[in-house]
């Protein structure tokens, strides 16, 4: 009979705990608090501090200067391009990611582990190399260079190249989120659906998709955050033409190199805000649908 966790009450002194039970596996309090303190200090230094500095520097010269940074035509174009690239890459990766996850989770086929490795490839390759690959393929001296020039198609140093590089770099997020989820859920729901007469397509829409929806949303969130924030790969393929082929991260670099610090930090504050929003939605999703995300059956 106790109302505080771990407190043990004695009938002789009913309102005061006689002693506190601690679980035998916990450390002593000072160890626990030291560890927590170190973790917080680390996070504060490496993560929190830069984030705070972005906002401090952006607003250092006052709100008017901050807002003036967004009046710049080229920065606006950069923001537009970032949004465009995300709007194309995320849906593309959504479709490809779901298809890849479906194949890996539902079918057995020769080359399956090779496909799984390929899906993870963009994570292990340096973003600069990812961008370079596209230059080598589609650049003027690249494999398809002459063909593209002959047909007046521009990929490198133009928007298509940026989209390609972004798709490559953000591809794993959705697939990797869905594969363990779908594997965990198994095939029985789909078998039940087809035994009841549903076609493959109906099964996918009415049974599979609802089952994976929270994992999918989670993957889309992460994919979007990365798509908007990608620097390395996009930097290699973009050509840095201000107003035409710079995305927000590239724009920030250019502004900084021109010593226009307030403007640079102002644009950066947008990306920082995006990061915070992503974290917020991610936390909400985890809190409300944590069990579903892990694919645990009831």
């Amino acid at each position: 009979m106790s109302d505080r966790e771990g407190a043990v009450y004695d009938s002789r002194r009913p309102n005061q705990p006689a002693y506190q039970h601690t679980r035998p596996t916990t450390e002593r309090p000072w160890v626990k608090w030291t560890l927590i303190g170190i973790a917080f200090a680390f996070m504060a230094l490496i993560v929190l501090l830069p984030l705070v500095i972005v906002f401090v520097e952006a607003l250092k010269k006052g709100l008017d200067t901050y807002l003036a940074s967004f009046d710049d035509r080229q920065s606006l174009a950069a923001i537009q391009l970032t949004l465009l690239v995300a709007a194309i890459s995320v849906p593309l990766n959504l479709v490809f990611g779901v298809m890849a996850a479906w194949c890996v989770a539902k079918y057995e086929f020769w080359g399956k582990s090779f496909l799984t490795t390929l899906i993870d490839l963009p994570f292990s390759v340096s973003p600069v190399v990812s961008g370079l690959v596209y230059v080598l393929l589609f650049g003027a001296q690249g494999w398809f260079g002459p063909f593209l020039r002959a047909n007046n198609i521009e990929i490198i140093f133009a928007v298509p190249g940026i989209v390609l590089a972004t798709v490559f770099v953000t591809f794993p997020f959705i697939a990797r989120e869905l594969i363990p989820l779908m594997q965990d859920q198994g095939n029985t729901d789909e078998e039940a659906a087809i035994s009841l007469g549903a076609t493959g397509w109906q099964t996918f829409w009415r049974v599979t998709l609802p089952n994976i929806r929270w994992g999918l949303l989670y993957g889309v969130l992460l994919c979007n955050a990365r798509a908007m924030g990608e620097f390395g790969a996009v930097s290699v393929v973009s050509g840095h033409i201000r107003g035409k082929t710079t995305t927000m991260p590239l724009d920030i670099e250019i502004l900084y190199n021109e010593y226009n610090f307030t403007a640079a930090f102002a644009i950066a504050s947008l990306l920082a805000a995006l990061a915070l929003l992503t974290l917020l939605f991610k936390t909400i999703l985890e809190l409300r649908f944590g069990a579903d995300l892990a694919g645990r059956r009831h």
Partner: peptide
């Protein structure tokens, strides 16, 4: 009509929708 060992009821549909599934598709 197949009844699975682990029931395989559709989690995102209620009982009535589960039963109606075969006819709706």
């Amino acid at each position: 009509g197949f009844v699975f060992q682990a029931y395989a009821l559709f989690r995102n549909m209620n009982v009535l929708e589960n039963i109606m599934f075969g006819l709706k598709v």
